[in-house]
Amino acid sequence: MTATATDTLSLLLERAEGERDAAARALHTAGAQAEAARAQHGELAGYRQDYQQRWTQSFAQGTTMSLVGCYQSFGQRLNQAVDTQGHVANHADQRLLRAREALRQAELRVAALRQLIARRQADAAKAAQRREQRATDEFAARAHLRRTAHA
């Protein structure tokens, strides 16, 4: 394998490894964001459940219509917040899946380039071995001719 081909493949491998490392960092970031989004969704849903339980107890004791209106208004906004955060968490999970796939593809590219480099190096070693064997055979043949010519 020529030095230029080796340099080119090494450069491609280095670039692919850089892309793989970037994909790994992106996966880590996406994982942290997805986890945070799911946690926030869980907290909001838990708060909504607590809020509903408190108001159910308050209604049992009697309350005014203005407080009922406040409860309903805040409850609607809380439901919207929970729903919105659920969508955010779903999108974060989708980004996480895409990041995981991007990392897998980047790792496949690195592995393929490493395999190609190893194959090319093995081919170059075989070619060098054949050249050396040919030179040795030629040297032995000339030596034999010289011996037979002198005899």
Rank of each mutant, 00 (worst) to 15 (best):
M1Y: 15
A3G: 11
A5Q: 10
T6N: 13
T8H: 14
T8R: 13
L9N: 11
L12F: 13
L13M: 06
R15L: 14
R15Y: 11
A16V: 12
G18Q: 10
E19R: 15
A22D: 12
A24K: 07
A26K: 05
A26C: 02
T29Q: 10
A30W: 02
A36L: 07
A36P: 00
A37K: 02
A39M: 04
Q40G: 03
Q40M: 07
L44R: 05
Q49A: 12
Y51S: 00
Y51M: 00
W55F: 10
W55N: 06
F59T: 08
A60P: 00
Q61E: 10
Q61P: 00
G62I: 03
G62W: 01
T64V: 09
T64Q: 08
C70G: 12
Y71K: 06
Y71S: 01
F74G: 00
F74E: 08
F74H: 09
R77E: 04
N79E: 09
T84L: 08
Q85W: 03
H87E: 10
A89F: 01
H91W: 03
D93T: 03
D93C: 02
D93E: 04
L96G: 00
L97S: 10
R98L: 06
E101N: 09
E101P: 00
E101D: 11
R104A: 13
Q105W: 02
E107V: 08
R109D: 14
V110N: 04
R114H: 11
Q115Y: 12
R120F: 09
A125N: 13
A128N: 15
A128W: 10
A128K: 15
Q129V: 13
R130Y: 13
R130I: 14
E132A: 15
Q133Y: 10
F139Q: 14
F139D: 06
A140S: 04
A141H: 03
R142F: 04
R142W: 03
R142P: 00
A143K: 11
H144D: 06
L145D: 06
R147L: 13
T148I: 06
A149F: 07
H150V: 15
A151F: 07
